[in-house]
Nucleic acid binder design. Structure first.
Length: 957
RNA sequence: ACUCGGGUGGUGGAACUGGUAGACACGCAGGACUUAAAAUCCUGUUCGCAGUAAUGCGAGUGACGGUUCAAUUCCGUUCCCGAGUACCA
């Protein structure tokens, strides 16, 4: 009987489906384990071999955990809102829901072919109204919550309202609050809500009449069409993720992410500790008139991480967009300042990055150093960013590279406060110098002086400690169609949330997916949908108003939520996917708790992973779930790149030259056949489908059919009668003809081979180019395994004889190794372990059920179909999924004596067989008696003899 | 520029806390079976030198140096590749 993998796999996939063997229950006496994959966006292109890498790894681990006695949740779903479907709709008029539906069906069929153990009854789709109902619901929770700074957690906004009504706050009294209009109250509250709306800058493309996401803007122009993009202020929704900066940072200590992943998140959050320092400012005119600016009580505040360098400040730089610029510019400098500000406005981010010119403009104002009264010029320059810190800095050229260059460029005198550490050639950012020219800080070590300087500033009321974050609040609205609509109605400038009963607010039908007016999204085109009359209890905003219900005209929010909205909480929905009354039953989320193992790519390091961590924290704060970190362990799978193949075509001709022949000599026959005189010709490299190349050798017959026979009449200049292709590693993509379809591999070698080969390729975390060549090796292994049970001619060969110790030893060594390898996600070495085991059993001609049965259980997670088939052939009735995981017998591996390598000064010289229970003294004697050791010793006594870890012996001369 | 990864045969990659570097597989070479092919099996395969041979000697994990009886592994310097961030004061 042969190994007919196609039949076997189809048979078992059907049986598993019929028997619902992957159905997961929320109650079980077993301990739980939650394995999650980052769910895919169902693109039209379908899966290529790069996608399933992580899914295979998680599937193996889920099955392994199940065998080890856990109740395992391993779900799959689709992140089905997103731009490509909308773009496709724009081009073809097909509704995104239709194409999405179709794509999902393709994905599911492909996934099922590989034999994953998903419980499809738990599938979630972010674009399903029954799902996004709860995305909207959580959004309303975010909207109706604020971050309490004293408790460092989210609380219902009502708590804040109550506080304002009874105590007021530092800006207004209780009486003032109660006298505010509803709009004024709402504006105050909006500044505290976790989901809030404000005017913010967006990338506006006039030509396309739409707002673009950052990644749709390339080099200052739109990715599609290449139209110019400018910054425009529009009302936008945001998530107050900055409020959670500290907790997001602290939470990293409690989760098992890779160091680089944690580092990326830390960098993104960008916490820095420093101080805000206030400078008085005087404006000087050439007429001699000078005015001290008193319009603000703190006219100019800068942020610095190096307050101890305060005596080294030679100028102050303010961001050109800073509010103060207009106020402080002198009459004389006004024109220059305006011109500079206009110049900066004209420059896109990309311009700035492309040419880092030193630019700036003096304002005519001077800041007064609060300690020594020195007057220092105030400049504006684009190198200071309006959005970070206070938008103004104190420049210390002797210690900061950028300040130094600026000072040099504009000839500003530099004060040296670090003595010999500063050479005048370049800035030195050391903290180890002794301060000079620094008033009361003189002769202090810089890092010690930091605290002293801030203390003094706080004492004098001219500065205070301040922590800043690089992270910004996350933009939460998109001017798009294919996303969750906001459950918000605007009325008189007030955002009114829908009631929970009104959810889901479903996406309405649109006739066009093009942008709406004024940069609004497509939804703005549907007047009937946008304009609503709403019954709104007017007392919600002001308890002093008499209760009552009035009819209020409103206008719906027309933007939709971004892609990450639905993916920020999907791991919770899997726990209780069909709950119509709650986003997730608390019992279910308490049971499944955190995701024990989360597998996905690094590309979501600072997006999805931060947002979902924040949402989890908010839900935790509001008491809706019982933990505040969603993912206990994160495993990052590497990217599988494509390995592209190239052929080289003679320019303008249908002739292809094998690379090594280019510029070489041509034979008479070739010359006649092709009409070429020599091979010193211009060639163009051209992508050729990797599937018609065997290694690097082009399959010429198939190439002639490539691109519908475009090259049917091509001529070739070969080497050794073969055409060798050029190779390059690139991203896998259809247009590069380097994609390999998993379906075809499953068809040709079987899903089990495919699964094991993907793992065998290397560590899951590593990125590597795909190469189909080695797959034969894995396939051979499975066939060899099959032959331990069945002979192609004789049929069944397995038997029920008793296994020998040697055979059991092979088995138990394998059990031990597989458990270690699987446990530390080293799936590639596990595959090798299986190969070694099967090779050894085959060598021993061991066909014994006793051994083979256990081996099958070990193999189940990796190659479930063949394991299940052989398991049933052995006469077992149930599914191998519920088999008992074999226990490793350590006693079997113990030997009575062992051969130890003996090295002299670390260099291997001989071997020595010793009994196991031998002690150090006996070892020494036996080693000294050894001939070869004696030869090396030449009569000298060794310094010492080291018996290392029961593994080897080293003699030190 | 900064931060984090990583450099091991012709190739993908093993070597878990320092302990016989190159497991396993691909490829390649040779052989067996076969009329032939496929399939299968066996042998060899880091490099250099010596030998008919079994084998022996030496070098070897990007480069240089250090710690150690012993370094792919730890430390320092340096080069290269990948990822992320980018004027964050």
């Amino acid at each position: 009987m042969e190994y007919k993998f196609n039949e076997i796999e189809q048979k078992w996939q059907e049986q598993w489906k019929k028997g619902k063997v992957y159905k997961v229950y929320n109650d079980s006496p077993k301990p739980k384990y939650y394995v999650l994959d980052m769910f895919p966006y169902p693109s039209g292109a379908g899966l290529h071999v790069g996608h399933p890498l992580g899914y295979i790894a998680s599937d193996i681990f889920s099955r392994y955990k199940r065998l080890k006695g856990f109740n395992v949740l391993h779900p799959m779903g689709f992140d089905s809102f997103g731009l490509p479907a909308e773009q496709y709709a724009l081009e073809t008029g097909q509704h995104p829901a239709t194409t999405t539906e179709k794509n999902i069906a393709t994905f599911k069929a492909q996934l099922d072919k590989i034999g994953f153990c998903y419980d499809w009854e738990r599938e979630v789709r972010t674009s399903d109204p029954q799902y996004y109902k709860w995305t909207q619901w959580i959004f309303l929770k975010l909207y109706n919550s604020y971050f309490c700074n004293t408790q460092q957690k989210a609380r219902p906004i009502e708590d804040l309202i109550t506080k304002y009504e009874t105590q007021g706050n530092k800006n207004f009294t209780r009486e003032q609050w109660n006298a505010f209009t509803k709009k004024e109250q709402e504006d105050v509250l909006m500044n505290r809500r976790l989901a809030f709306s404000k005017y913010g800058e967006v990338n506006w493309c006039e030509a396309l009449g739409t707002v673009l996401a950052n990644d749709e803007v390339v080099n200052g122009v739109s990715e599609r069409g290449g139209h110019p993009v400018v910054k425009k202020k529009m009302r936008q929704w945001y998530l107050r993720i900055t409020a959670y900066a500290d907790r997001l940072l602290a939470g990293l200590e409690t989760v098992d992410f890779s160091d680089s992943m944690k580092e990326m998140q830390r960098n993104w959050i960008g916490k820095s500790e420093g101080a805000e320092v206030t400078f008085k400012v005087v404006k000087r005119e050439s007429s001699g008139v000078s005015t001290e600016l008193t319009t603000h009580h703190s006219p100019l505040t800068v942020y610095t991480t190096r307050p101890e360098t305060i005596f080294g400040v030679d100028f102050v730089v303010v961001a050109p967009e800073h509010d103060l610029v207009n106020e402080i510019k002198s009459a004389e400098q006004a024109a220059a300042v305006d011109e500079y500000v206009a110049y900066v406005k004209s420059r896109s981010d990309v311009d700035r990055m492309a040419e880092k010119k030193i630019t700036g403009c003096f304002t005519g104002a001077y800041a007064i150093n609060p300690f020594d009264g020195k007057e220092i010029p105030v400049w504006i320059s684009e190198y200071v960013l309006a959005g970070y810190g206070t938008g103004a800095i104190m420049a210390v050229p002797c210690g900061d590279e950028r300040d130094f260059k600026f000072a040099q460029h504009f000839n500003i005198a530099i004060t040296n406060i670090i003595g010999s550490h500063y050479t005048g050639e370049e800035a030195n950012p050391t903290k180890e110098a002794i301060l000079e020219n620094s008033g009361f800080l003189n002769s202090l070590l810089m890092k010690d002086a930091i605290g002293i300087a801030v203390n003094k500033m706080e004492e004098l009321g001219i500065g205070k400690r301040k922590v800043n974050y690089r992270m910004r609040d996350a933009g939460f609205s998109r001017q798009r169609y294919w996303g969750e609509p906001f459950p918000i109605v605007w009325s008189d400038g007030i955002a009114i949330p829908l009631d929970a009963e009104e959810l889901p607010l479903e996406l309405p039908h649109v006739d066009t997916y093009g942008p709406g007016p004024e940069g609004e999204g497509p939804l703005a085109n549907i007047k009937d949908w946008v304009d609503v009359g709403r019954n709104t209890p007017c007392g919600v905003f002001n308890t002093n108003t008499p209760q009552g219900v009035i009819l209020q005209k409103g206008r719906r929010e027309t933007s939709t939520m971004p892609g990450y909205a639905g993916s920020s909480w999907y791991f919770l929905r899997y726990m209780d996917p069909n709950n119509a009354n709650e986003f997730c039953d608390r019992k279910a989320s308490d049971y499944w708790n955190q995701v024990d193992l989360y597998i996905g790519g690094t590309e979501h390091a600072v997006g999805h992973l931060l947002y979902s961590r924040m949402w989890t924290k908010v839900l935790f704060d509001l008491g809706l779930i019982g933990y505040d970190e969603p993912f206990k362990k994160l495993l990052n799978q590497g990217m599988i790149q494509g390995s592209s193949r190239f052929v080289y075509r003679v320019r303008g001709r249908n002739i292809f030259i094998s690379p090594n022949r280019i510029n070489g000599s041509i034979t008479e026959e070739e010359s006649q056949r092709t009409g070429l005189v020599d091979l010193k010709v211009e060639v163009d490299p051209m992508h050729v489908d990797v599937n018609i190349v065997d290694g690097v050798e082009l399959k010429i017959a198939e190439f002639k059919k490539f691109k519908n026979g475009e090259y049917a009449n091509a001529e070739f200049i070969l080497e050794d009668d073969k055409y060798f292709c050029g190779v390059e590693t690139e991203k896998m993509s259809k247009s590069k003809y380097n994609t390999v379809n998993p379906d075809e591999l499953c068809e040709k070698y079987g899903a089990d081979t495919f699964r094991m080969y993907e793992m065998f390729l290397g560590p899951v975390e590593a990125s590597k180019p795909w190469d189909t060549k080695g797959i034969e090796g894995v396939h051979r292994f499975l066939r060899k395994l099959w032959r331990l049970f069945n002979d192609d001619l004789k049929g069944k060969v397995w038997n029920e004889e008793k296994a020998t110790d040697a055979e059991l030893k092979v088995l138990h060594r394998t059990i031990k190794k597989i458990e270690e390898d699987t446990g530390r996600f080293s799936f590639n070495t596990a595959v090798s372990t299986f190969m070694i085991c099967v090779n050894e059993l085959a060598d021993m001609k061991c066909n014994k059920k006793e051994v083979l049965e256990k081996l099958l259980i070990l193999l189940t997670p990796y190659a479930p179909h063949i394991a299940e088939e052989l398991w049933s052939q052995l006469g077992n009735s149930g599914s191998i999924l519920d088999a008992e995981y074999p226990e490793f017998n350590a006693a079997l591996l113990v030997e009575s004596s062992k051969e130890y390598p003996v090295s002299i000064n670390g260099k291997l010289r001989t071997n020595l067989t010793l009994a196991l229970d031998i002690d150090q003294k006996e070892v020494e004697e036996l080693v000294l008696q050894n001939e070869i050791v004696q030869k090396w010793l030449e009569g000298n006594a060794p310094k010492k003899i080291i018996f290392v870890k029961n593994k080897m012996i080293n003699v030190v001369l």
